[in-house]
Amino acid sequence: MSSSVEAAEAKGPQIRRTGTGGRIRFGIYVALSLAALAWSFSGLEVSGERILKGLPQVGQIVRQMFLPPNWAYFPKVAQEMVVSLQIAALGTAIAAVLALPFGVLAARNLTRLAGLPFAGKVLLNMIRTFPELILALMFIRALGPGPFAGVLAVGFHSIGMIGKLYAERIETVDKAALEALAASGASPIEVFRYGVVPEVLPDFLSFALYRFDLNVRAATVLGLVGAGGVGTLIQFQIGRDWPSVGMILLGIIVTVGLVDFVSAKLRARLA
C-alpha cells in the first residue's frame, strides 16, 4: 500500500514478489478499456484523415528542425537552459524543506490524532494535483513574468509529491525502536532526531533528487507561459524558425538525459 509507483520510480528497479493475476479481472479490464476507447473517441475532433494530413507536415518540420539545427543558437539555448536548471534546483530545494512538516504531520506513526495524517495526505494530494503551469500563470499575474514566478510554481507544486513520499517513508520506520527510545526517557523531539532522522535521511535526499529530475522537465515547459527558462525560446521561435527550435529541443534532450543519468547514479549510491 505504501509503495506507490512514484516511490518505486524514485528507488529504481528492485526484485519484488510476483502477482497472481486473475484472468477474470484482466477480462474486465479489457472490456473496460474498449468501452473507454469508444466513449473517449466519440465527439473528439480526431479523424484518421486529419492525422494523415498532418503527418507530411510533421516530417517536414522534423527535417527543418534537425537537418541541420541552428548551431549558432547554442549559446542562447545554453544560457536559458541554465535558468531552467536554476528554477528546478531552487524550486526543488524550497519544496524539500517546506514538505518536511507536511511529511511529519501526514505520517500515521508519529501522532496520536487519527484524523491528522488523513487530512495531511488529502492536503498533499491537493497540492500535487494543482497544475504547476496554472500556478505559474497566477504568480506571473501577481509578481510579473520571469523565472521567479517559475521557481515559486515549482516550489509550491513539488511539496505535494515530496511530502507524500516523506510521509510514506516515515511510516515504514520501525515502531519498536521509537518506543524503546521513548521508554529510555527521550523527548518526542529526541525520538524524532535519533529514531527517525538518521534512518530516513538518505531516502529523503533521493526523493528530492527524483523530484529534481521531474522539475527540470517542468522548468523547460514553464517558459511557454512566460515563467522563465528555455521554454521562453520555444514560445518565441515555434512556427517561425524551425532550425532554432531544433537546437532548443536538442538542448532539452541532452540536458534532461544527463540530469536523469546523474540523478539515477546518485540515488543508487544513496540507497
Partner: peptide, 25 residues
Amino acid sequence: LNLLRTIPDLVLASLLAAAFGLGPL
C-alpha cells in the same frame, strides 16, 4: 525509450500543435 522520456510532454504538444493545427488532436 529513455530518449522519448526526455522530451517534456507540453513541448511535444506545442510542436505537434504546429504540425496538426490547434485542437485536441
